[in-house]
């Protein structure tokens, strides 16, 4: 039997990739809705689930979806994470990312969560607990992109 090495294996990696994503039927309509400050969701005729971001097919019954709704840009934060280690091309850390259930939908939208002071970690984690209400803050300049919503702001606590 020859030797066995447990030496740590380390590779230096460089990614340099140009690409283009065509968003397709549902997400194209969704992004163009954002440009007009409209939050559009699709609803399955078969099971009545509403998807936001919208989908052309229902992931529960595999039926095609053609029905659409415009939603109030408010919802409930279901989970969140605070990013302290930035990433090339990403926003300046720290920032918060959350999974948001828009009212009347049965899915989660990932987006930035703002309006919380992230310098105090413990306070920020409390403020970003699941169940808090959030509202979309529209970007001034909108280009049919997900960043047409600047972030979702945590609603101030009710007095």
């Amino acid at each position: 039997m020859s030797e066995t090495s447990t030496a740590a294996l380390i590779h230096d990696v460089r990614w340099e990739i140009d690409y283009r994503v065509r968003l397709g039927r549902a997400w194209s309509r969704f992004m163009r809705g954002l440009r007009d400050r409209k939050l559009l969701a699709s609803t399955c005729d078969h099971c009545d689930r509403t998807y936001l971001p919208p989908q052309s097919y229902c992931e529960a019954c595999y039926e095609p979806i053609t029905r659409w709704q415009e939603c109030e840009p408010v919802g409930t934060l279901r989970t969140a994470t605070i990013v302290y280690q930035g990433f090339d091309g990403g926003p300046q850390a720290p920032y918060a990312v959350g999974a948001i259930e828009i009212d009347g939908t049965h899915s989660l939208l990932m987006h930035f969560v703002g309006g919380v002071d992230l310098s105090d970690v413990d306070a920020a984690r409390k403020a970003l607990r699941g169940g808090v209400r959030v509202r979309a803050v529209w970007a001034d300049e909108r280009t049919a992109a997900i960043t047409d919503i600047a972030h979702f702001a945590v609603a101030p606590a009710q007095p």
């Binding site: 380390i10 990614w15 194209s28």
Partner: peptide, 22 residues
Amino acid sequence: TDPVAEPVTIQGHWDFGYTYFA
């Protein structure tokens, strides 16, 4: 705007280096 004939297109560019520890 027909989303099938004229989809929204995102131009992406990734350029970053990192060290992978297995």
